[in-house]
């Protein structure tokens, strides 16, 4: 359950409010796009790789490590066990 998955930030959606807490990003997980929160990694930028868990980026990763991790997850067939990829491979919430 504590598995986090690497993806690359395609777009950042800044909120109009003063706080970083509502900043979200569209993250590309090798083709599946999911909108996640950037609240916990306020320094993340477009094109950065981030480690994502339950809808939140937890850490910025370097590209080599991120790709290696993704490959392992694919090979070990773990990715499809994560609900967002299993039930809803391409999901993007509407802009709020």
């Amino acid at each position: 359950m504590c598995l986090a998955v690497p993806g690359r930030i395609a777009l950042i959606h800044r909120s109009d409010s003063e706080s970083d807490a509502r900043t979200t990003a569209t993250v590309d997980f090798q083709g599946s796009r999911v909108q996640i929160s950037l609240e916990l990694t306020p320094d993340a930028r477009v094109e950065d790789w981030v480690l994502v868990h339950a809808g939140f980026a937890l850490q910025v990763l370097d590209e080599g490590e991120a790709r290696e991790l993704w490959e392992y997850l694919q090979e070990a067939d773990v990715v499809r066990e994560i609900p967002v990829f299993a039930e809803n491979p391409v999901r993007e919430e509407s802009e709020r």
Partner: peptide
Amino acid sequence: GFETTAPATAS
């Protein structure tokens, strides 16, 4: 969940 998921709940 452990500390991996707790920040999400807090947020």
